[in-house]
Design a protein around this nucleic acid. Structure first.
Length: 334
DNA sequence: TGCAGTGTTGCTTC
DNA sequence: CGAAGCAACACTGC
């Protein structure tokens, strides 16, 4: 579930422990059992060998978030990009490698016949260790482990000064928590006359004069090229707070509604960061600890329950929108 | 037991 | 353009 607040929580943790450490070794079993044919990620064996050659011996400068991507900047002008997708999370601690017995419950996820387990007692002990598919050995004797149950994650290396042309980063919209993401900017993105989202046809005619204006607001909020970092949970929570139905179009939004949504974006993302992110599913911080935002959900996964808006009296509905399950109150979200 | 559902993204088809 | 369906993968819950 890593969306913006979860990635931020991870980045904050990484920046407390990683800077100035050197990567001494890298291990992965991603490439052993995957149908992914991309050759530019570590799921490809040749690419992983290259990745390992480039990364071992480099010192870590710092970590940065861009959208839902984790960027780990190294000396030598290279940056590691990690997109956690559905189930990825980075864990920091002291690990050791073992060859587990198959009867210990390690099933399909285990491809290599080896797993890494934490040496010290604590949160890292509780789970997810059998899903570690990438691990860095650091110069202080500790490890940075990447657990990824469903193996959807993307890990690659790029030249730091080419970040502006790397499509994973270049295609992203503005950062919603950036000071420069003003109400004016949000309005420009959503308004029908906006230059955003318009394309020119061969004849030079404006093809979609409405920009994003005709799409459903839920899918627009989740569109990483419109705004970077918002996913299914936070789009539901933002729309509930702003009182806007997920199927409304940006073109139909009144000024007051845009302002309410803009404020909700800032408030909800910031409050989740303060709570250490959302651990309704398997997100954990780098020490394996849960975040708390799942306790503050107003709509997400509350299908058929009462709307929590004061004196609303509505019942939370669930409907698939843009291929994602969307939760909303059809009484106060108009 | 079996199958729908799960935070993300990208590709294909209509 | 945009929406829908599905694939990548493995587990949980009904």
């Amino acid at each position: 579930m890593p969306e913006l607040p979860e990635v931020t929580t991870t980045i904050n943790g990484l920046n407390k422990v990683l800077p100035k450490l050197t990567i001494k070794d890298v291990w992965s079993d991603y490439f052993l059992r995957t149908k992914n044919r991309r050759t530019d990620t570590i799921k490809n064996k040749k690419y992983f060998e290259y990745f390992k050659r480039e990364v071992v011996g480099k010192k870590i400068k710092n970590a940065e978030r861009r959208g839902k991507n984790i960027l780990i900047h190294l000396t030598g002008g290279r940056t590691i990009l990690i997109h956690m997708k559905m189930t990825g999370h980075l864990l920091y601690g002291k690990y050791k490698r073992i060859s587990p017995r198959q009867d210990l419950g390690h099933s399909k996820g285990l491809a290599s016949g080896e797993i890494w387990i934490p040496v010290e007692k604590g949160f890292l002990q509780d789970s997810f260790n059998k899903f570690i598919h990438l691990i860095f050995t650091l110069s202080n004797g500790k490890h940075l482990a990447f657990s990824d149950m469903r193996k959807f994650a993307k890990v690659m290396l790029f030249e730091t000064d080419k970040r502006d042309v790397l499509v994973d980063l270049a295609s992203l919209g503005p950062e919603p928590l950036d000071k420069t993401f003003t109400l004016k900017k949000f309005r420009e993105i959503l308004q029908p006359t906006s230059a955003f989202g318009r394309t020119e046809s061969a004849s030079g005619e404006t093809q979609s004069a409405q920009g994003y204006g005709g799409r459903r607001i839920k899918t627009v909020l989740m569109d990483q090229s419109v705004l970077a970092g918002i996913g299914n949970i936070y789009s539901d929570e933002i729309l509930w707070t702003a009182g806007i139905h997920p199927e409304r179009t940006p073109a139909s939004l009144k000024e007051k509604e845009m302002k309410g949504m803009w404020k909700a974006i800032k408030i909800i993302l910031e409050s989740s960061i303060k709570m250490g992110g959302d651990s309704m599913s398997d997100y954990r911080n780098i020490y394996g600890e849960k975040g708390q935002f799942q306790k503050a959900h107003k709509v997400y996964r509350r299908t058929k329950e009462k709307c929590l808006k004061k004196s609303c009296g509505g019942i939370i509905q669930r409907k698939v929108i843009g291929g994602r399950s969307s939760h909303f109150c059809d009484r106060h979200q108009k």
